[in-house]
Design a binder for these strands. Structure first.
Length: 966
DNA sequence: AGGGTTTTTT
């Protein structure tokens, strides 16, 4: 921004307006003092109650000091309407058409010329101008009005100006404030002088009428209001303003009052008019408050009437002492809108509302003690807000750290940290808290960064047209009206715009509807009437289009164009999610409850189309805690979208890493969560890239050590055969200490195979190279695998085959696994040969096991016989030797009985030994197989098998013979 | 089965 050139300054000086003053305004009594202070100080604080005339007179005083020549006198107001009306008033007092000497600028509109000296604007506009004019060179004087309201904009501006003033010694600053919190502002600006201006308020008498302490419920409040109204009506005529926390209380009170009989107390009048007043009310309904009729009026208002709107002609105030206050909970990342006790400053402001026309009376529905126990001031907005937007703006203005920024009151570090966290989740700042490319672009948008983020995402998803409409809608109050006398009718009218999947899409339908209305409109009057009939706010619809137009222009500057092909549901909602990831929810078991980010639980707002839909996954435009934590403006989403959109915000957990032979890779199950919500429960993934070290170990253990691997590599066949061979020995010997443990085999491979090998493919590649140098590099040696020699395990002791008397050989299998059906020795016999088996031969098992078997027989003898055989091992040897020498065609038990009789003269009764008591592995297991090698039956009882399968065996045997004959 | 204040922005 360029300063004025010398000739322009000269011209401005020459035509400087000469203000005149209405001397009855209190502020003008202090004119000289103010002028003197302004000449001597860079900053002056002026405080005075409403009615002092400071807002309109101070700019004129500045003109008299020849301010406004080198730059404009910038004068800010918290609200747009105020900026415009104040501009009009000052213009009138200076006898200049609006836009000439005095101009104004608010969002979307303004009226100002190069000849203007005074510029009224909202504080938001001045703040926005810092982006293009960081030194605010356009101004030589600034008036920050209503600073006591302590909005986010005001606090930010005052911090910014604190930094700016040393760089602009020529700039004068006036801060005005209503209440006596002036000292805080003075301290903030290096002990600037404070000039107090008396207000022109009439005295207000305060009565305290606390609710009865034993029963502080809703009904009690209603009763108290009625009593207060009765009390005031009895005092004399005059309108009453009742401050209530919200719309619901207003409605209840309105009903209570309508049912109440005022007539007796107040005869001869036309009655009582009850007027609700809150910001969401339609324009027409609000208008009623400003057009007094004949009846006595009771206005039931929220906080709008405390600062934003001045209800005329109020003589009495009833103050419930309550308000809904917006607070951001950084812990849950949601806004709270809970009913709180108002501060003393707020209570005084409310009381002051009845001292504007005459002496007033204010009844407080709480105790005086309660009043004195309350905090002096309402917490400024900056201590109650999410700081993401503030931080983003500060970063884009490059004005240093948030932590050291000269705020009037600095937000606590955890709130600042939370702001950074949200920005980081939006991708606006990096790990060094510096703005990213995305952050820079977000800062260009005059909307919430979350909403701006959707617009950036919409470019990728090709749905800018739709998202611009939705983003604009989310940046203002819902254009749909729902007056409480006509709720059902309004809902009915709005049903026309619903989409059963998503509340966001209603905005698109409503947009098209209004667009159509505009195209076919006959007159604005008719259009407004049509909107009212259909429960739509014409003003908000227009505002919507204005914001949309602004966003549209902005994306044009960024070189983006809206899509011409309509976007899909998925594209639109994926874009929305980019800004709203923290607002996702998953339906819980509990009726109507959703689990949200970071363990929060929320309910769907009743007006949503998804209220009853039981959608599994949803996203909400906002989460606000009122009577419950409610999600408003909801859509169904597909959780499969989330992972890609959330990127690094997702947390991944792995379980059960395992070898997969077919792919020759280690795989694991992946679980993905976002803010603690499980978005992918169980997914099979390649584990090699996730934990290469563990994967390598699993590969070696499973594929190479355990042999679960498919390869024709000679080393593998060799090593497997070797291990198998030694395992066989263990089965035969019925002991497990022959093969070295797996850890040693693992250690062997681990030492040879390079670190980077983590799967089959990598291994084979390496192996082929390694084997060129040494073909046997991976060969295990027998000695490496055996813990001891196992010399007693010979072919004679544990033969591979059972040789039948006719020369047939039947394979034997050994197993050491007590309890297993095949524990011990198993002979495998083809069905045709089953009848050839002789129990007497099977009794003797194999040489390596017969000693154990005979020992068992001896040990289970009755005591008096057993005693005579001691020492048993010697007796066993003797029996086995004798049998080997003589041969024996008797069954084993008979042979034993004979041996015992001879040796001890004792007769062993036939029932002494029961096969059922014998350890299984001491009886030969017989497995019968059919032609195809499939098992037909298995048992240790030969006679039972032969009984069961004997006939079949016989036939099979005959058939075989016949076939041989052919 | 059930409802929320207010304001502002290149």
């Amino acid at each position: 921004m360029k300063k004025f050139s010398p000739d322009v300054i000269a011209r401005r000086l020459a035509s400087l307006p000469q203000p005149s003053y209405a001397e009855d305004l209190p502020v003008n009594a202090r004119r000289q003092e103010i002028m003197q202070a302004l000449e001597q100080h860079q900053v002056v604080i002026i405080c005075g109650e409403t009615g002092s005339g400071k807002t309109t007179q101070i700019p004129k005083i500045c003109l008299e000091l020849k301010r406004g020549v080198h730059g404009l006198i910038g004068h800010t107001q918290p609200r747009r309407i105020a900026a415009r009306t104040v501009a009009a008033r000052i213009a009138e007092e200076l006898k200049s058409p609006l836009g000439q000497t005095v101009g104004y600028k608010i969002r979307f509109t303004g009226k100002i010329s190069s000849d203007s000296y005074i510029k009224l604007m909202t504080d938001g506009i001045l703040l926005a101008e810092t982006q293009v004019d960081p030194l605010l060179q356009a101004y030589d004087t600034l008036i920050i009005d209503e600073a006591h309201e302590r909005s986010l904009n005001i606090d930010f501006l005052l911090g910014y100006l604190n930094q700016l003033l040393p760089k602009r010694p020529d700039l004068k600053l006036i801060v005005t404030s209503a209440t006596i919190d002036a000292q805080r502002f003075a301290r903030h600006f290096n002990n600037a002088p404070v000039i107090e201006v008396t207000g022109r308020l009439f005295p207000v008498e305060i009565f305290y009428r606390p609710l009865t302490a034993d029963d502080e419920d809703e009904g009690d409040l209603q009763r108290a209001i009625i009593h207060a109204v009765d009390e005031l009506i009895a005092l004399g005529p005059g309108d009453i303003l009742v401050f209530l926390p919200g719309e619901r209380e207003i409605r209840e009170t309105a009903e209570t009052l309508r049912k109440h009989h005022f007539g007796r107390l107040w005869p001869g009048r036309t009655g009582v008019e009850i007027l609700p007043l809150f910001a969401r009310l339609s324009f027409a309904e609000q208008e009623r408050v400003f057009q007094p009729g004949g009846a006595r009026r009771i206005v039931l208002a929220t906080n709008v009437a405390e600062t934003s709107l001045t209800v005329p002609g109020i003589h009495y105030v009833i103050d419930t002492g309550l308000a809904r206050i917006n607070r951001y909970s950084y812990r849950n990342k949601v806004e709270q809108l809970l009913v709180e006790k108002i501060s003393r400053a707020s209570a005084n402001q409310r009381a002051g509302r009845c001292g504007r026309v005459a002496n007033g009376i204010c009844i407080r529905l709480y105790a005086e003690q309660d009043y004195h126990g309350r905090p002096e001031y309402t917490d400024p907005e900056i201590l109650r807000s999410s700081l993401a937007a503030v931080i983003l703006r500060m970063k884009s203005l490059k004005i240093g750290d948030v932590e050291s920024f000269p705020f009037l009151q600095s937000p606590p570090p955890r709130m600042i940290a939370d702001g950074y966290q949200l920005l980081s989740e939006l991708g606006a700042v990096d790990e060094n808290k510096q703005l990213t490319a995305v952050g820079w672009r977000l800062s260009k948008f005059p909307i919430d960064p979350k909403i701006a983020r959707m617009i950036l995402a919409a470019k990728q998803e090709n749905c800018l047209r739709e998202i611009l409409i939705i983003a604009a809608a989310l940046s203002l109050q819902d254009p749909r009206d729902r007056p409480f006398e006509h709720q059902a009718a309004a809902d009915n009218a709005h049903r026309h715009f619903t989409d059963e999947r998503s509340d966001f899409l209603s905005y698109l339908k409503l947009w098209d509807y209004f667009d159509d209305l505009l195209k076919h409109k006959k007159s604005t009057r008719k259009l407004i009437a049509h909107c009212r009939e259909h429960f739509l706010s014409y003003r908000r619809l227009r505002e919507w289009r204005e914001i949309h137009g602004q966003l549209h222009a902005l994306i044009g500057e960024l070189g983006l164009k809206p899509n011409e092909i309509p976007a899909s549901y998925d594209e639109i909602h994926r874009s929305l999610l980019s800004g709203l990831l923290g607002n996702i929810g998953f339906k819980t078991e509990k009726e109507g409850e959703y689990a949200g980010a970071r363990g929060i639980k929320f309910a769907i707002f009743p007006a949503s189309v998804l209220k009853k839909a039981k959608a599994k996954w949803v996203v909400a435009a906002e989460l606000v805690e009122t009577s419950k934590l409610y999600a408003r403006c909801i859509a169904r989403i597909d959780p499969a979208w989330l992972e890609k959109i959330a990127g690094n915000l997702c947390k991944k957990y792995y379980s059960d890493p395992h070898w997969q032979k077919k792919q020759a890779q280690v795989m694991a199950y992946e679980r993905v969560t976002l803010y603690g919500l499980m978005i992918v429960p169980k997914r099979l993934v390649y584990y090699g890239s996730i934990d290469p070290e563990e994967s390598r170990e699993i590969f070696i253990r499973s594929a190479l050590v355990a042999g679960d691997y498919h390869t024709d590599a000679p080393f593998f066949q060799h090593n497997q055969a070797l291990i198998h061979n030694i395992e066989e020995l263990e089965h035969k010997a019925r002991r497990q200490d022959v093969l070295v443990d797996e850890q040693q085999i693992f250690a062997f491979y681990n030492a040879i195979i390079p670190h980077k090998i983590i799967n089959g493919a990598g291994f084979e590649k390496w192996r082929k190279q390694a084997e060129q140098h040494n073909p046997q590099v991976l060969f295990l040696q027998r000695e490496q695998l055996m813990r001891h020699g196992a010399h007693d395990i010979t072919e004679v002791q544990f033969p591979e085959n059972l040789i039948l008397p006719d020369g047939n050989q039947l394979p034997l299998a050994y197993r050491f696994e007590p309890g297993h059906v095949m524990d011990g020795v198993t002979v495998r016999v083809p069905l045709p040969l089953l009848n050839r088996l002789d129990a007497r031969q099977l009794d003797y098992l194999v040489p390596g096991l017969i000693r154990d078997k005979v020992t068992w027989y001896f040990k289970t003898l009755p005591k008096q016989i057993r005693r005579m055989l001691v020492p048993l091992p010697q007796a066993v040897t003797e029996f086995l030797e004798r049998r080997a020498n003589t041969g024996n065609s008797l069954p084993l038990e008979n042979s034993l009985a004979q041996f015992i009789l001879r040796k001890t003269t004792q007769i062993v009764p036939p029932e002494t030994w029961s096969a059922a008591d014998m350890p299984m592995h001491l009886r030969m297991n017989i497995q019968v197989a059919d032609d195809a090698g499939e098992e037909l039956a298995m048992s240790r009882d030969l006679s039972a098998l032969q009984m069961q399968l004997g006939n079949a065996a016989q036939q099979d045997f005959m058939k075989h013979n016949r076939e041989h004959e052919k």
